[in-house]
Design a protein around this nucleic acid. Sequence first.
DNA 1: ACTATCATTGAATCAGTCC
DNA 2: TGGACTGATTCAATGATAG
Lengths: 369, 369
Amino acid sequence: MATDKAAGARSALPLDQILSGDCIDVMNSLPANSVDLIFADPPYNLQLKGELHRPDNSKVDAVDDAWDQFSSFRAYDKFSRAWLKAAHRILKPDGAIWVIGSYHNIFRVGAALQDQGYWILNDVVWRKSNPMPNFRGKRLTNAHETMIWAAKSDSGKYTFNYEALKELNEGTQMRSDWVIPICNGNERLKDANGQKAHPTQKPEALLHRVLVGSSKPGDVILDPFFGSGTTGAVAKRLGRHFIGIEREAKYRKVAEARIAKIRRHDRDALEVTQPKRAEPRVPFGHLVERGMLTPGDQLHSFNGRYKAKVRADGTLVAHDARGSIHQVGAILEGAPSCNGWTYWCFNRDGQKMPIDVLRQQVRSEMREN
Amino acid sequence: MATDKAAGARSALPLDQILSGDCIDVMNSLPANSVDLIFADPPYNLQLKGELHRPDNSKVDAVDDAWDQFSSFRAYDKFSRAWLKAAHRILKPDGAIWVIGSYHNIFRVGAALQDQGYWILNDVVWRKSNPMPNFRGKRLTNAHETMIWAAKSDSGKYTFNYEALKELNEGTQMRSDWVIPICNGNERLKDANGQKAHPTQKPEALLHRVLVGSSKPGDVILDPFFGSGTTGAVAKRLGRHFIGIEREAKYRKVAEARIAKIRRHDRDALEVTQPKRAEPRVPFGHLVERGMLTPGDQLHSFNGRYKAKVRADGTLVAHDARGSIHQVGAILEGAPSCNGWTYWCFNRDGQKMPIDVLRQQVRSEMREN
DNA sequence: ACTATCATTGAATCAGTCC
DNA sequence: TGGACTGATTCAATGATAG
């Protein structure tokens, strides 16, 4: 086990803190292969030409901060490749990254990710339910932003809590387009003057879905462009550790105060639906041993096309095949593989039932001990 | 006015034809500054590793055609930059381009567009109402594709029919995410054997919106990867001229037959009455993500008999049951089914309120679009 | 003719464990 | 580290077939 090594690496990490400085320097100071997940909201490199006014002549408060100014695409690319490289080093081999952006920068970031060996898992569209309209009527309403979810490499065993996200979506698998409102109202942090404390504060709902879906309780989540600290706030609430990096003192202060107020949810509220694989393995032969099926019993394929006979050792014989429930199903169907538990059915009271219900019965008996 | 010059250039153009050959060579043979709009559906460079089977063991018919194979990102970039350069030359100064792709290629294409001086106007998300699921449960359902809409330069006076798109969108300005079904049913072209005639035929509804929104009647629309000819079919119907370029004879033949059947301004075929939309589904988990309920919160059954705790993934845990709001209600009541929305209540200001009021709140936010 | 059920299919970078 | 083996996994829409 790598437990000692992991604990060693973790103890060296500045957990649940906001580090000051340039994110590339700070990441380079952290140990390699030590972070589970990175969420990054880098500068978008907006190329604004002038002021924008609403139809009522009020001025739109645009993102024109110094940190969003780059002299050229080349300069922006150089910056992107540098921080993505530093991020790649500190990620665990099975780690992953999320990057959010708009059409101004996301194409360049995505290409850089691919060039550096990250393996894109999905691009996810954050569809804003309440976007800012296009006041001039010169383009489509820019009603979404794009997130890229990528593993450290194409062989990385990234975390994906499929069942939890399926539950979040009321029983059907989560899609790559997420409808979430932009951050305003009470959630939007204000400074002493009542002005927004950060120009691009992300909604906590977005981070909630990201972290529930692609991290585990206790994981270390790093955000190199911490800003107002949404990543830290949601990580703390969900029982994950965070590491924030932020250059500007005023944002560090805002984020610190914000996170201090957050309480972690109860442990049992953080548990999410587990995959079936986590349940104990039940060999088919045990059903025969326990007399739930008898040697000689006939099973039928769920589609009615084939039948097979149970043997005393828990193997099946069909017309032209013998072996495990999986092997015989695969051979008969001419398929590379087959889940025998759901493929084969037996008769109970004239009803066709998959043998998986017998396995469930065994498992629930095992739990009672 | 440049009328004479435009007429001269146009007379040299092979209008309403499908040209054979490599799209770069063919575009280079056309006059400069002569095309109003380009719609391009280039190869996506999918990097598939093996076969994929559905849970019922049927095999997914993947896009593994030779035209989609590139040896490396570098080779794909070289190809992209070459055809984009040729496209740039033949576009009129006020022309524009649309390119469609997936996360496999769209970031590279987008970066190439920017590098070559195109000016991105919007990225548009095609949200598929009926995407192929993720059969292994290893990622999010890949439920969208991305289109980039760009002008020839940042000073180009591109065509944008703001009002027409606003009408198409029931009176509110068109957003950057479009919900459109994938192409199947009668619209999907089949060959003599009943097999799909082209692996990646795009829906006409998509092109309809593109052409209505960003071109004028009589404009010249060029599609360098013509395939089954959706661009030509929609252009002809909408009274635009098209120029198709397609390398493979079998696709040229399919497209030619298809377009021959199209009648211009066949309005009643376009104007289908829209069914009144049902209320949008709101998964319970979304209330948790948005902080309307918090993991750990307790819910009470409306009859006061049971209580349950909310988890981070939008499932409930009760004394002896866990699952969706509906499942847990049904288990506790010993009922075959249960409407969790009206069964479960939360406390607000000491008042017991059904969670359905929270759902109503989310729906009214969604309607604000 | 109408309804219910079943089969098919779509641009997909789609497995984990044990020996 | 490679090979054998277990076994997890799907949504919406269309069209065909059965009742």
